[in-house]
Write a protein that binds this DNA or RNA. Structure first.
Lengths: 225, 225
DNA sequence: CCTTTGAGTGCACGGATGTACACCGAAAGT
DNA sequence: ACTTTCGGTGTACATCCGTGCACTCAAAGG
């Protein structure tokens, strides 16, 4: 695969600095781990399996990570970096005018695009969120909480949202939406690329989002009256 | 712990038939597995760990299960048996009059009660749902689908629900509710018994359920007009 | 009473795992 | 041109893993 060219093969001499090589091996380790743990979980993954997949000797692993756990935390960082770039895309998009329907459609579309772009990252988060080592779980939980907070402030900015919403209510609403979207991503991934499953899942997600958004508004106004 | 009395201790002679003893050991294995995999996942659990915890020799495990995977499937059965008993309780309860608020409050209360009664079962389902071996994942997914279907028919029977709801819409709504409730259970469990976390989670769950239910109705009527 | 059954034992094995240690050799630094 | 740095190597070892096999011995059953 993408194994780092062993020193003996430097006959080819593709001028590559030392830090570049190190970074390349690090990447290979991250990718190998992401792929290998796909059928179960990081906790069921051995250092030796990763090393073999990468094409280095087991002890070579320690040059990059102190343990599998540290590897996991690095993967959390990486996964959420890509997720945040998606959220930024949603936020800056001008694919919708301002109606709920168009916001929902654009958001679901972007979510699906990103799940396609980084399927292993999403799968990793979904899995380790509940099954990882405690430190990994906590890291993911914290990141998701940040996502919910960001979403809450975004919702507050929507023109259609009354300005008397409490921050608590915004948090609750965004929590519900995030939960539904995480579940949607999980279903798409577990659908294993089948177009029909995915289209169905997308349609369900759109409907659910509409129910939630319109419902929240209605509920809100009923609280006010 | 609850290890089966070894044959040598039969001096005590508590007249116990052979099948009773076998069943007791089987239970001990199930309990030990449920407890041991709590900090990670079934896939990261060895036959030997379970055997040691139970107090039998490793090969003794095979008298009860062919593999850890089969153990996992048995745990899925057991977990959902208890979950279904909860759902039956919700369905038959007369704790509410018929208003949405009382339905929501009663449902959330019963959910929390049951999470308290079977915390390991809920945690197991939440974990293995995404991180288990494929066969275990599939078994759980199937069971959850059944729960969604049952909930959909229950919702259809509510007096407040218009009778022109399509089965699709009912499925979508119940899927959303189940997702939110699974998430609620996960949060309660990860709160690790702290009363404050739990009360907060319950309140969030109630609010989310109200948003969803009232929202679905509003959305529905807006579709009709 | 004598036979059968079967849950649990004890040992032994080949293989995988994490990690310690000494080593290499090319790139980086001087 | 030299020394240093440091990814990556190779060997080695204690530990755990699943599992095969022959065994025990009390309950079940004729």
């Amino acid at each position: 695969m993408t194994r780092p060219t062993p020193p003996t093969a430097t006959l080819v001499r593709v001028t590559e600095t030392r830090v570049e090589r190190k970074e390349r091996t690090r990447r290979a380790i991250l990718d190998a781990a992401l792929e290998l743990c796909e059928e179960s979980s990081l906790v069921a993954l051995s250092l030796r399996q990763v090393a073999k997949e990468v094409g280095i000797v087991p002890t070579g692993f320690y040059r990059h990570f102190e343990s599998i756990e540290e590897l996991g935390l690095a993967l959390v960082d990486e996964s959420f970096a890509s997720l945040r770039s998606m959220l930024r895309a949603v936020r800056q998009t001008d694919r919708f005018d301002g109606s709920f329907a168009s916001i929902v459609d654009a958001s679901v579309d972007i979510l699906l695009e990103h799940v396609h772009a980084h399927p292993r990252h999403f799968a990793f988060i979904a899995r380790e969120r509940t099954a990882g080592q405690p430190s990994v779980r906590d890291a993911i939980r914290h990141e998701i909480e940040l996502c919910e907070l960001e979403l809450a402030t975004d919702i507050a900015k929507l023109p259609a949202v009354a300005d008397d919403w409490s921050t608590d209510d915004l948090r609750i609403l965004s929590g519900l939406i995030v939960t539904a979207m995480v579940s949607t991503a999980e279903q798409v991934i577990s659908g294993h690329g089948r177009r029909a499953v995915e289209e169905r899942t997308a349609e369900v997600a759109r409907t659910q989002l509409r129910m939630v958004l319109i419902g929240a508004l209605q509920w809100r106004s009923s609280q006010r009256s």
